[in-house]
């Protein structure tokens, strides 16, 4: 299944017009394939993620959105029998190169998961966790980062009086914003969000979406969602995936209004998925 780098497949033509960010691309996914054992899950995907913009990955369940997202910070590494081909380049550096420090890579790519997963510790400990693992013990720096990150995650006003309370006492939406704050605290370049609102109620979802809009520009955000309205609301660019392939990639309003592919058309209009 491996193909020579540089060979372009027919799909390329459908994704030539993403909205361009002000500072060019940050992430190049080039002909990327992935196998779970003998079963191939991703097929020759090639897109460029624009810096500072919000890129949405949409598609029906099991189409490989999350797998692709998790490949970006190599969270899939530990899965047994997993191997890949093709390249994913962060700032023109292939992240699968043997001398790449995975730990450092993940520090550049913060991740927010589907289910809110705060650590069973205090709110401030949760947010300062990325600093703690870097060996930063300075209380002043820690508390500054906690405040800034929580403010960025629009959670500060709600929790500033109970920073020493256990994070598990927060509501689901607050927990998810706390996880975003935790990701922000590491000062990443890219924020990977894996269906961040699927476990939340509509009110909390709105808050997260507002937050994504606020974070636009400061971070390059890649968000996986199967809520098409959400993709339409928050993203600048959208990639539609189906059966492990990126079918179409382009400006979000183009994808939703004038998709080139019939499959995209069917999906965004709700015929399947």
């Amino acid at each position: 299944m491996t193909e020579q780098p540089g060979t372009r497949t027919s799909m390329d033509r459908k994704m030539v017009h993403p909205q361009h960010g002000a500072e060019g691309t940050i992430l190049d996914i080039d002909n990327f394939c992935l196998w779970y054992g003998l079963k191939q899950a991703l097929f020759n995907n090639t897109i460029s993620v624009e810096k500072g913009l919000v890129t949405a990955l949409i598609g029906p369940s099991g189409c490989g959105k999350s797998t692709l997202l998790r490949s970006l910070n190599r969270m899939n590494d530990l899965i047994e029998g997993l191997h890949t081909s093709g390249e994913i380049r962060l700032d023109n550096q292939n992240i699968f190169d043997s001398h790449v420090d995975v730990i450092a890579l993940r520090k550049r790519m913060g991740m927010v998961f589907q289910k809110p997963n705060p650590f069973p510790m205090t709110i401030s400990d949760n947010v300062s966790y990325p600093l703690k693992i870097d060996g930063i013990r300075d209380r002043r720096i820690l508390s500054e980062t906690v405040e800034k990150s929580l403010q960025s995650a629009a959670l500060w006003d709600e929790v500033k009086d109970r920073l020493k309370d256990n994070a598990l006492g927060l509501s689901g939406g607050q927990q998810q914003r706390l996880c975003i704050a935790r990701a922000i605290a590491a000062d990443p370049e890219v924020l990977l969000m894996d269906e961040p609102c699927s476990a939340l109620d509509p009110m909390a979802t709105t808050k997260i979406e507002d937050l994504i809009n606020e974070l636009r520009g400061r971070y390059s955000i890649i968000i996986v969602t199967h809520n098409m309205q959400q993709a339409a609301r928050v993203s600048d660019n959208t990639a539609f995936m189906y059966l492990g392939k990126i079918i179409e990639y382009g400006k979000t309003d183009t994808i939703f209004t004038k998709p080139r592919s019939q499959q995209t058309q069917d999906y965004v209009t709700g015929r399947f998925g």
């Binding site: 969270m75 993940r106 520090k107 990701a183």
Partner: peptide
């Protein structure tokens, strides 16, 4: 998911 959260933070 706790391990994932920690590893995702770069631990």
């Amino acid at each position: 998911h706790l391990r994932a959260a920690s590893l995702g933070c770069g631990a």
